Simulated scan of single mutants.
Amino acid sequence: MPGGLLLGDEAPNFEANTTIGPIRFHDFLGDSWAFVFSHPRDFTPVCTTELWQSCKSWHQKFAKMNVKNVALSIDSVEDHLAWSKDINVYNGDEPTEKLPFPIIDDKKRELAILLGMLDPSEKDEKGMPVTARVVFVFGPDKKLKLSILYPATTGRNFDEILRVIKSLQLTATKQVATPVDWKEGESVMVLPTISEEEAKSLFPKGVFTKDLPSGKKYLRYTPQP
């Protein structure tokens, strides 16, 4: 499939029509992080549950972390706005309440192709591929920090997305890595490139090394900075 982004690539500074009006992507982000997620179609069941998840409580959690949400599918703004009424009712809100983040109009599939978001296994009534459930996380430098690609048939886990953004933000400013199943507040791992002497000054709360049969001192933990 043509298009697509790799980790470290800069996001294209595209212009798009959205449910909040026209945006230029870099200007819209400013100095924020970005959670960009595509969904196959409006007025479909799994997508409705996902957009509900990101509408209220999750949107607020992301905003507190300086993360802006942007959604995208191959539907028009008019369809997005009509579908928003269903999302609101599903969420127990008034139908006319505005969603707190933009949904991009990509009915020509130009952005989906540019970003590599199409799912070749899922097609619309005309036999054209629809957008997969892609997750992109961009940093304030506009570079891609995370990419997750789900098929159209599988809904996302927003707890995991929130967890991984917390890890990305922590490791962007501290010389640490987060171990398997890490959660905010738990111990982190000292990077192997940091010497023992440097680690003592960087991590005043202490560094704890796990003894291993190899004798190599690479499993080093420290409380979350």
Rank of each mutant, 00 (worst) to 15 (best):
M1Q: 10
P2A: 11
G4P: 02
G8D: 14
D9I: 00
E10R: 08
F14K: 06
A16I: 06
N17A: 09
G21N: 09
P22S: 09
H26Q: 06
H26F: 05
D27M: 07
L29I: 14
L29D: 07
G30Q: 13
W33H: 11
F35P: 00
F35Y: 14
F37K: 02
F37I: 03
S38V: 04
D42P: 07
T44K: 07
T44N: 00
V46S: 00
T48S: 12
T48G: 03
Q53H: 03
K56T: 11
S57I: 12
W58R: 06
K61T: 14
K61F: 06
F62S: 01
K64I: 07
K68P: 04
K68H: 08
K68A: 02
N69D: 13
N69L: 15
A71N: 03
L72A: 02
V77A: 06
V77D: 05
V77C: 08
E78A: 11
H80N: 08
S84G: 07
K85G: 10
G92L: 11
E97Y: 12
L99V: 13
L99Q: 11
P100V: 08
P100R: 06
F101P: 02
I104R: 04
D106W: 01
D106M: 07
K108E: 15
E110V: 14
A112I: 02
L114Y: 03
G116D: 09
G116T: 04
L118A: 03
L118K: 13
E122A: 14
E122F: 05
D124L: 04
D124Y: 08
E125G: 01
K126R: 11
K126Y: 08
P129S: 12
V130S: 03
T131S: 15
R133K: 14
V134Q: 01
F136R: 00
F138G: 00
G139K: 06
L144F: 11
L144Q: 05
L146G: 02
L149W: 12
Y150P: 03
A152W: 00
A152I: 01
T154H: 01
N157D: 15
D159E: 11
R163A: 09
R163W: 11
R163H: 06
I165V: 14
K166Y: 00
K166A: 03
S167P: 00
L168R: 12
L168W: 05
Q169R: 10
L170N: 06
A172S: 15
T173Y: 12
Q175L: 08
Q175C: 04
A177L: 10
V180M: 13
S187P: 01
M189W: 04
M189P: 04
V190D: 01
P192D: 09
T193N: 07
I194E: 00
E196P: 05
E197G: 04
E198R: 08
K200C: 00
S201G: 14
S201A: 11
S201I: 10
S201T: 14
L202M: 11
G206R: 09
G206M: 08
F208H: 15
T209R: 09
K210F: 06
D211S: 14
L212P: 00
P213K: 15
P213N: 12
L219Y: 04
R220G: 08
T222V: 14
T222M: 01
P223L: 10
Q224A: 07
P225K: 07
